[in-house]
Structures are given as structure tokens and as C-alpha cells.
Design a protein around this nucleic acid. Structure first.
Lengths: 225, 225
DNA sequence: CAAACACTACGGCCCGTACCGAAGCATTAA
DNA sequence: TTAATGCTTCGGTACGGGCCGTAGTGTTTG
């Protein structure tokens, strides 16, 4: 038969543990160098270089040369969503790492998913926006309502009204197994968390660390209980 | 580092071309025997048997023994959604099969996605339901409104109001790159197409073949232009 | 009962590829 | 210019896994 697109190429790219670790690290949304990704994968630089070339060729990641450093990022949000969905399957199948990460609970509470907020708080944010009718389903997918626009304006969150990427998008959260908010709005809200000082990134991790006061302010801003 | 679930196991399962072909075939929602899947993958039965054991072990497929036949199906809808999402990535990356399938246009027009309708018509159906406010976003995801319930009641579509699987769910369509309807409601509507004789399955394919009259009736029923 | 059928299990071959050592480029620092 | 850094490329090794031939198990048919 052989109908439809060929998924085996992408599958085999993700199928190597080293490359999978690199991709997981890139889910932090940060641009990482080949060296950093090599240590992430637990291989020497030469080996990592080969992996990265393959993933670039396969369209999973993009490369930015800056001086003698090569910075890598995920190619686009579509890749991030597929990875998050795969993590959902893997988690459900109980294929957690034998040595579960030390920051696992923090990851589940709040983490970065490419460029937006995920985890318990990410899902709670999404639920609150839907509850307040800030988001509604239009023909072209999820749309920001006038109410929602007013809400984020009031908070001082600025999101470019135009742009090629979708404004709102759902992304299935692997730890909660429910959707959180992605798209340009999702990115803008995460940026806001940082710029307001409510939260900050944890080095070498996808974890988003909320400050006690910041967590309260965040919850109050969006009406999260 | 090594945070989060291990996606490499699932990736490597999908990464083999033979196994990927088997999974694509299972996206038709039909239960296929080991022999059928072997010819699908282009390998001998012994080889296919090994692949199937691995995919069963990995939780991607389930097995039903009936007499001397072993029937295989995708493990659940989550697997189907990940596969469809992967196809979306692969199609976008231009990694279509070198020898594009003979029924490619028909696949893009109307096909089965595990147990619901996908392709051009699938997306149009989803859009029409949203336009008519038959579906709306609730806190727990997509919900069937009272209007929507009346609409499908009037059409004689029966969907079990309770059930563990979600009633409505979005599924990203690989050919249209937009969502279509999945979940128990999506399944019920596809079943309705068959039972009303509006369309029928094409053997050995995911293609849904509409009869001329049936296509008109389907479009009229849901207000698709 | 034997024969045909559908599939699984085992063993050996072989190709693909991950891995690392060594060497080569490019960029930055001294 | 020389040295150090970050990365790529090449070459060779080794291991894993896909593949098929053969054999074995369970089921249906005659």
C-alpha cells in the first residue's frame, strides 16, 4: 500500500537515545551549542556533531552559527508539539526513565514547552482562559475573544496581532494529559512571567521556577485558584 | 539532565520503515492479520512477527487471537493521534514517499483516521460543527452543545453519552494541516456514513469512498458547502 | 489421522550506524 | 604569529538489529 507520508525517517531520528536527549533538552526553547548537546546526550563532540547534522537535514532542528559556536534550536513549534505528544505516549506507557529525573516534580508543576508554559500551571492557565471566555473556538481554530484581548491588554501583555504563526494553539501536555496554551499568545504570556519577575528559568532545565510572590500574582492575574 | 519521559523507545519503533508501514496500514482502523501486515511491510511473515511483538511490547498495538489468526489494531486513539501528527511533520518536510501512492488525491479528500473521518471532508465537517455552535470549548476541552446534541439526534446518530474516552477531541490532519473531529462523536459520525450507505471503505486502504448521492446527503446534513 | 494453514521461536548472516581517535577548518585570544 | 577553542570530517571498529531459512506450536480442514 504505502499510502501517506513516510514517518519512518523522523521516527528513526527520534529513535536514537542520544538524539532524543538532545531534542528533550531543546524543548527548553533555549539555543544550545553542539558541545552542550553532546554532554546532554552523553557522547563526544564528534558523535554529537554527526547527530546534529542528521537532525538538521531531517528538518527537526535549525542551526545558527555565531563565531565559533553553533547554536541549535528546534525547527519550529510543530516539532515541539510532536515531541510533547510523544512524551505523553511514553509517560502513559510507563516508559519513564529508569532513573527518573531529580527535578521531576518541578517539571510537572511548571516547565517550558518550547516557548510557552506547560505542566500543572500551564494547564490551569489554559483552563482559566477558557472559563473566562477569553478563548473560543472559531472556524480557524482557537481564537482570542475581545474579552480576552482586554484581559491581556490590562495585564500589559503585548502580542503582535499579525504574524504567520497562529495566535492561539493547543498543545497536549505530557504530564497532565490535557492541553495547555501554545502559539504566539502562549509565548507572550511566558515572556511576561519572566519580564515581570514572577518566575525565572532554571539553568540546564525546562523547569520554570516561580517566586512565592510571583506565583500569587500570576494566579491572581488569570484567576487561577 | 535526562528529564522527562523517554521518547527514544517509541521513536525507534516507528523508525523502521517496515513497522512504519504497518502502523500506517493500521491507521485505517481495521484489524489486520500478521500476514496482511507482513505484505504491507514488504517482509516475510517471520520478520513481521518479530516486529509485531516489539510494537505490542512497546504499547503501540494490541493483539486479538482468533483461531489461527492474530488480528492487530492500534493500541488506542492516542497512538493514532501521534502517528497522524508525525505524518503532518513528514508531509511538511517534503518527505513524501518517493513513489507517491496511487490514491493520494483520494486520501487527501476523505480517509479514515483510526476510527473517524479525516482529510478535506473531515476538516470541513469539523469547521461546520464549530460554525453552527454544535461544538464549543469548555474547561474540559471540546464539548458538544445542546444545539449540537439536537443536530445529531435529528440525524439519527447515536453516541453513548457516557464512556471513558472523550466525546469530542481534535486531531491534527496531516494533509490539511488543520484539525478534524476525533473522539467518540467522530467515530459515531463515521459509522453513520457507512450505515446510511453514504460512503464505504476501500479495501486495503484508508480511503473513504463517497457515493455521488451520499456525498450530497452528507454535505446537506451538516451544512457543508 | 494427516495435511494445510497462520503464526511464533531460534540461529546465523549481513548491513547500517553509533561511537571514538585523529586530523582538518574556522574563529578567537594572547 | 602562535596557541587555544569549538566544531566538522574522515577512517576504522564494534555492536545492534533487520532479514530470512529452518523448525516448532497451535488451529482448521479433509
Amino acid at each position: 500500500m504505502k499510502e501517506g507520508p513516510d514517518i519512518s525517517r523522523i521516527g528513526s531520528l527520534i529513535g536514537d537515545p542520544g538524539r532524543a536527549n538532545m531534542l528533550s533538552a531543546l524543548m527548553s526553547g533555549k539555543a544550545l551549542t553542539a558541545g552542550e548537546l553532546a554532554s546532554e546526550a552523553g557522547v563526544l563532540l564528534q558523535t554529537a556533531s554527526g547527530h546534529l547534522a542528521k537532525m538538521e537535514e531531517g528538518g527537526l532542528i535549525r542551526r545558527n552559527r555565531q563565531g565559533r559556536h553553533h547554536y541549535f534550536v528546534l525547527a519550529d513549534e510543530d516539532v515541539a508539539r510532536v515531541l510533547e505528544a510523544l512524551m505523553g505516549l511514553a509517560a502513559k506507557r510507563g516508559q519513564l526513565r529508569t532513573r527518573t529525573g531529580p527535578r521531576d516534580p518541578e517539571m510537572r508543576f511548571a516547565r517550558v514547552c518550547y516557548n510557552h508554559l506547560a505542566g500543572d500551571l500551564g494547564v490551569a492557565l489554559f483552563d482559566a482562559l477558557k472559563r473566562d471566555q477569553a478563548l473560543m473556538v472559531g472556524v480557524d481554530g482557537l481564537e482570542l475573544t475581545q474579552t480576552g484581548q482586554q484581559q491581556i491588554d490590562a495585564l500589559g501583555i503585548h502580542v503582535d496581532p499579525k504574524g504567520r504563526a497562529p495566535l492561539c494553539r493547543e498543545c497536549l501536555d505530557w504530564s497532565e494529559r490535557r492541553s495547555h496554551l501554545a502559539g504566539r499568545l502562549g509565548r507572550a504570556i511566558l515572556d511576561h512571567l519572566y519580564s515581570e519577575g514572577w518566575a525565572e528559568r532554571v539553568a540546564d532545565s525546562r523547569v520554570v521556577s516561580f517566586k512565592p510572590k510571583g506565583l500569587g500574582q500570576f494566579k491572581a492575574a488569570f484567576g487561577i485558584s
